[in-house]
Amino acid sequence: MEIPSKKPNPIDVEVGRRIRMRRGLLGLSQTTLADSLGITFQQVQKYEKGTNRVGASRLQAIAEFLQTSVSFFFEGQETIGTDTENMHGREITDFISTAEGLSLNRSFVRIQDPDVRRKIVGLVKVLGSTAADQDAFEGPATAPT
């Protein structure tokens, strides 16, 4: 008899990602959120990983503490795992949930000059592109004559 694996449900994982993202954007620690809910920070970790499901009343309390609506945690989840556009949404959520993503986002929104912002986006695109991407963008490299 085969024992079924206990993989987290993709919806639970996405709700957890959004909890982590919102908590990070507000600059709150897992301990701060946990204390406000009367639970341990380990339980918050399990929610954020999708290991444990968040009950409805607990999700409502989390939403209130994180100053958002419950629907925020479910936006775009009708097609989880089937839509390429939704995959990019998860990539963004994953990135913003990292320390680097959060720091970059906070710093970027403080830049007031739209030209500077566009130049930074351009720089990041160049730094993040592969050689094939650059060839397609700039055309094939030619030898100096």
Rank of each mutant, 00 (worst) to 15 (best):
A141S: 15
A63G: 11
P144R: 09
V116K: 14
Q134P: 00
F72D: 10
P114I: 05
G101F: 02
Y47A: 00
I111E: 07
F95Y: 13
S107L: 10
A132P: 00
K125V: 11
I80L: 15
G55D: 11
G27C: 07
Y47C: 03
A56N: 08
M87H: 11
R53E: 10
R53Q: 13
G81D: 12
F41L: 06
V116D: 14
V15A: 10
L102W: 04
A132R: 03
L59E: 01
I62A: 03
I92T: 12
S57I: 02
L33N: 08
L26R: 04
S107A: 14
F65A: 04
D133A: 07
P144M: 02
Q134E: 02
D115R: 12
R22K: 09
Q30M: 14
R117P: 06
I39L: 07
A136Q: 12
D83W: 01
Q43H: 05
G24V: 03
N86S: 03
V121R: 13
F72Y: 15
Q112M: 11
S69C: 06
E138Y: 14
V126D: 11
I19H: 08
R118V: 07
T84H: 08
E75W: 01
R23C: 03
I3V: 12
E100C: 07
F72L: 07
N105W: 06
P10L: 00
I11W: 05
R18Q: 04
K119Y: 11
I120E: 14
E78M: 01
G55A: 09
S69M: 02
Q60T: 04
D135G: 01
V44W: 01
I120M: 10
T32F: 13
T98M: 05
Q112E: 15
I96P: 12
Q67D: 13
V54G: 09
K125A: 15
A131T: 04
V109S: 12
K6L: 01
V116Q: 13
G89H: 03
P4E: 10
E91R: 03
T51H: 04
I3R: 05
L25V: 06
Q42Y: 03
A136M: 00
T82S: 11
T84F: 01
A136T: 06
T142L: 09
G128A: 04
I11A: 12
N86W: 05
G139T: 03
I11E: 12
L59S: 02
Q112S: 12
L66C: 07
G81I: 13
R90W: 01
Q67L: 07
